[in-house]
Design a protein around this nucleic acid. Structure first.
Length: 425
RNA sequence: GUGGCUGUAGCUCAGUCGGUAGAGCACUGGAUUGUGGCUCCAGGUGUCGAGGGUUCGAGCCCCUUCAGCCACCCCA
């Protein structure tokens, strides 16, 4: 048996409806905030990710699906979406028409990691990017949109956390201050954190080991080391969030896995995802476009992990659509008629089903019941001769004769009635 | 890359002290001729993840290997 690839999952009927729902709501809500979809390839030249995400990040160092194509170019399955969107934005000079762009994307991302709960080698993100405005209100607006979306699709028990990582002018000083602070405490830190102290000291603040948390309890905060523009930006972001009544918590220990972030960073976290806690994450990247060879335009964006949203929805599945009608036919002539009727209903957009195996009426009724058909049309020799059928309401258990010529109309009428009733309830 | 747990029917899982495998669900047929869900009856399916070893005999014990899950690292 040929199986799928580790960490790459099939999304089967029964679950796919939830995916479709989450995607549709994102399209609808993001559109209201002025975002347009952009579709970019799932592979890019490897250099793009090295330059944007950062050479020394874990993603670039050990998690990329990179290979050489037949032309000798090193290409990589995208580990995230922002780099590709920025490449496209720059390549097509979208800033020439309008220096402000709001773009969203959705699709698969790839990272070579050991799979675990909420974490896969092929995973899916919905992301949004707002380019060209450095006003803090844009930061707040993006977080408001994200919060609005999660609320709308019924994701509960989450918290929006915000932080500022400063900029290349002020972050190095903080980094030094943190290194100085941690140096005398190295003994108290875990093995991983002693390594982090050298490689990425900010990560020490994020460690879960109790000993490390104690040792860093009095550590300097990045928020006290921001320079004036960064501090001002951050306070205006918070003010704007308050103004919009978006609940949030400041988390000065929040760290990022990608190098391009500046100033505002944010995460939506939950305790219901096993070892994972992030549902969505994002931040400002005011240097990225320039670093990739574009104009000096600022940007901010976020991405949500679809698998994680689906996981949080849990058993709360979106019900697949029910067939409007199952045509139960007895005998060959009735079978032909049922097949014709089914096709004509389908052309009118009504989901209809029938039996192709000449089964007994009992068996056909059982199948109709299992498919949760709203109605069944029973068509035997006698009905066929009179050009009528028995229309059975499967929910009510009632049945009436109807003329075959009126089938579609009667069906639409009664389905409409039903929908009205549902709406009233 | 490291560690732990688990692999038995399509699915969820039992399987005693080592004696050649079971249940529920699902599926199919039936319980008055042409009427679903509930109930009852009947029916089939397994390289017991794979390979090797111990043993008269292995689903069970030992070794190897593969896969899945979970956790670490890191992250959506």
């Amino acid at each position: 048996m040929i199986t799928g690839i580790k960490g790459m999952n099939d999304i089967l009927p029964g679950e796919v409806e939830t995916w479709q729902y989450l995607e549709e709501q994102a399209r609808r809500i993001f559109a209201a905030y002025g975002f347009a979809e952009i579709r970019v390839p799932v592979v890019e030249k490897t250099d793009l990710f090295c330059r944007s995400i950062g050479e020394s990040t874990d993603i670039v160092e050990k998690e990329m699906y990179s290979f050489t194509d037949k032309g000798g170019t090193s290409i990589t399955l995208r580990p995230e979406g922002t780099a590709s969107v920025m490449r496209s934005f720059i390549e097509h000079k979208l800033y020439a028409q309008d220096p402000v762009a709001r773009l969203y994307y959705l699709g698969p991302m790839f990272r070579y990691e050991r799979p675990q709960k909420g974490r896969y080698r092929q995973f899916h993100q919905i992301g949004a990017e707002a380019i060209g405005i450095d006003d803090p209100r844009v930061d707040a607006q993006l977080m408001a949109m994200l919060t609005h979306y999660l609320d709308e699709v019924g994701i509960r028990d989450v918290e929006l956390q915000v932080n500022s990582l400063g900029c290349p002018e002020c972050r190095p000083a903080y980094r030094q201050a943190l290194i100085f602070f941690l140096q005398p405490q190295l003994e108290a830190l875990c093995e991983d954190c002693r390594r982090r102290w050298c490689t990425n000291p900010l990560r020490v603040l994020d460690c879960k080991v109790p000993g490390c948390r104690e040792a860093t309890a009095q550590a300097p905060s990045i928020l006290d080391h921001l320079d004036t523009p960064c501090a001002d930006h951050f306070s205006r972001v918070r003010a704007a969030l308050e103004d919009l009544a978006v609940p949030f918590a400041v988390n000065p220990r929040m760290v990022r896995g990608l190098d391009y972030y500046t100033k505002t960073t944010f995460e939506v976290v939950t305790g219901n995802l096993g070892a994972q806690n992030a549902v969505a994450a994002g931040g400002r990247y005011d240097r990225l476009i320039q670093d990739l060879g574009g104009p000096p335009l600022p940007g901010i964006g976020f991405a949500m992990g679809l698998e994680r949203l689906v996981l949080l929805k849990g058993e709360e599945r979106i019900a697949p659509p029910r067939p409007a009608l199952f045509l139960a036919a007895l005998g060959e002539a009735a079978g032909r008629q049922a097949f014709r009727l089914m096709c004509s209903l389908q052309r009118r957009g009504l989901r209809a089903e029938t039996d192709f195996e000449g089964k007994s009426l009992k068996a056909q009724m059982r199948r109709a019941g299992r498919l949760q058909a709203r109605f069944v049309l029973i068509l035997g020799e006698e009905e066929l001769a009179r050009q009528i059928g028995q229309l059975r309401d499967m929910d009510a258990g009632t049945q009436e004769e109807i003329a075959l010529g009126e089938l579609a109309e009667r069906l639409l009428e009664r389905l409409g009635q039903r929908e009205t009733l549902d709406a009233v309830r």
